[in-house]
C-alpha cells in the first residue's frame, strides 16, 4: 500500500458516497446513467470472485470489495425501484453491446491465464475502463450536469488518475513488477476523463454550472 493507492481508493469510496448523497437528498437519479451503474455491478462481481476462493489479501482489501459490491447493488435498487420515476431511459441511450462485446472478446484473448477466474478478472478490468462511457455519453447529449454529479465524476476520475503514479511507485519499489493488463486499461480509462476534467476545472471549480459548449 502506498499513498497514491490509498488516496485513490478513498476517492473511489468518496465518489460512491457523493452519488448516494445526490440521489438521497434530491430524491432523484436524474442525470445518472443506470447503464454505467449496472456495468459497475458487473465489474465488481466479476472481479471480486476471489473473495470466495480463499485468495485472501488483507482485511482492508476484503472489506473494500464487499463495500463496492454492496453499494453498487444498492445504487441499482435506488435507481430501479425507489426512485424509478426519476430515471429517464430516453437520454441513457448508449448501446451496452458496444461495450460488452469487445471487452468480452479482449478478455478471452488477453488474460494472464485461460481459467474462468482469470478471464473474468481481465473482463472486469477492460469493462471498468469503459464503463463510464454511457454516463459521459449522457452528459454529452444533455450538455449540462448538476454540480453534485460533476463532483461524483471528478472523484471517480481522481481515483483512476492516482492509480497511475501508484503503478510507477510500485514499479520502482517492487523490483520492476508491472501488471500490463491493469496498466494499459487504466491509462485508457483515465484518458476518457480528460475532456470532463477540462470543463470541471474551467467551469465548476470557478463556481459556474457544468455546461458544454453548444
Amino acid at each position: 500500500m502506498n499513498l497514491f493507492r490509498l488516496v485513490a481508493d478513498l476517492s473511489h469510496l468518496a465518489s460512491i458516497f457523493i452519488l448516494l448523497h445526490k440521489i438521497q437528498t434530491t430524491r432523484s437519479c436524474r442525470g445518472i446513467s443506470i447503464k454505467t451503474q449496472l456495468l459497475y455491478v458487473l465489474v465488481f462481481v466479476t472481479r471480486y470472485l476471489d473473495l470466495f476462493t480463499g485468495d485472501f489479501v488483507s482485511i482492508y482489501n476484503s472489506v473494500m470489495k464487499l463495500f463496492f459490491i454492496g453499494s453498487s447493488c444498492y445504487i441499482i435498487y435506488l435507481m430501479r425501484i425507489k426512485y424509478k420515476p426519476t430515471n429517464d431511459p430516453s437520454i441513457d441511450t448508449f448501446r451496452l453491446e458496444y461495450i460488452l462485446g469487445p471487452t468480452a472478446v479482449l478478455a478471452l484473448i488477453f488474460n494472464y491465464k485461460f481459467t474462468f477466474l482469470e478471464v473474468l478478472w481481465a473482463f472486469s478490468i477492460y469493462l471498468e475502463a469503459v464503463a463510464i462511457l454511457p454516463q459521459l455519453f449522457m452528459l454529452q447529449r444533455t450538455g449540462e450536469a448538476e454540480t453534485i454529479t460533476t463532483h461524483y465524476l471528478a472523484a471517480l476520475g481522481i481515483y483512476r488518475g492516482l492509480y497511475i503514479p501508484n503503478w510507477i511507485y510500485r514499479y520502482f519499489t517492487e523490483g520492476g513488477a508491472i501488471d500490463p493488463i491493469a496498466v494499459v486499461a487504466g491509462i485508457v480509462q483515465t484518458a476518457l476523463y480528460v475532456d470532463f476534467f477540462y470543463v470541471y476545472f474551467t467551469k465548476v471549480l470557478q463556481g459556474q454550472k457544468f455546461e458544454l459548449p453548444a
Binding site: 481508493d9 485468495d55 501488471d179
Partner: peptide
C-alpha cells in the same frame, strides 16, 4: 525478473 502476477488491487 517479473514478479508473479497477483490481484492485490481493487
Amino acid at each position: 525478473k517479473q514478479k508473479e502476477h497477483e490481484h492485490d488491487e481493487l
